[in-house]
Amino acid sequence: MSELRSRVAQFVIDVGDLDAGVAFWAAVLDATEETLGADSQPVYRRLKLPDSDIRILLQRTDDPKTSKERMHLDLETNDVDAEVERIEALGATRWDHQQERGHDFWVLHDPWGNEFCVLSPEFPRLLARRRAT
């Protein structure tokens, strides 16, 4: 029996429009689109992050969002207010400003209502290696 190996390969985000989803999330994450096979393109689009081997998979769905996500992305930044404004200009909306347990962060909704957070650095050394946008 061979050794068992597992890893996070990708994080899936549901969107109603794949082209708009790629435009929004690629701009937010400074990601580039990877080509998928023609049979997958009507339902999926994949983004490569500039500083991670984990991918973002956009999945087209017409299902309505009915409740809070049980998983979401946290985006860290050295300037929360400026980053929230930049992402709003791309089409996100502010949903909730939270200050709890020593953290001050914004919960945003992408254009399809998916929640994600923008917060101060959790991993400052990793953030310092990230190129500026």
Rank of each mutant, 00 (worst) to 15 (best):
V12I: 12
D39K: 14
D62E: 15
H109V: 05
I56H: 02
A26I: 05
E33Q: 12
G21R: 03
D79M: 07
D63W: 03
D74K: 06
E76T: 15
R45C: 02
L36Q: 13
R46Q: 09
L126R: 15
V84I: 09
V22E: 02
R94N: 09
T32N: 10
L47G: 01
S2P: 11
Y44N: 01
V118R: 03
R60P: 00
I54D: 01
H72Q: 10
V118M: 06
R130W: 00
I54Y: 04
A27I: 09
D81H: 08
E115G: 05
D110T: 02
R45H: 02
R86F: 10
F116D: 04
R101A: 15
L73E: 01
A23P: 00
N78E: 13
G37P: 03
R45L: 05
V118S: 04
D30Q: 11
V15W: 03
R125T: 15
R7Q: 11
K68Y: 12
L73M: 14
V8A: 04
I54Q: 13
N114P: 01
N78C: 09
V15S: 00
T93F: 04
R55P: 02
S120Y: 07
E69H: 13
P124R: 15
D62T: 15
L127T: 02
G21D: 01
K48W: 00
T32K: 14
E33D: 00
Q99A: 09
K65P: 01
L18G: 04
G113A: 00
P50G: 07
N78K: 14
E83L: 06
L90M: 04
S67M: 13
A27W: 01
A92N: 05
W106Q: 07
R7F: 10
P42C: 01
D30F: 00
L4H: 12
L108E: 07
A23R: 14
R131D: 11
D39M: 05
P42V: 10
L58P: 02
P50E: 06
E76A: 09
W112Q: 08
G21L: 06
V28M: 06
D39W: 12
I87C: 08
L119W: 09
I56L: 08
G16S: 08
I87P: 11
A82C: 03
H72T: 04
V118L: 13
L29I: 12
D74L: 08
S2K: 13
D39F: 11
E83M: 10
I56N: 01
P121Q: 14
S67H: 12
S6E: 09
A31Y: 03
S52P: 07
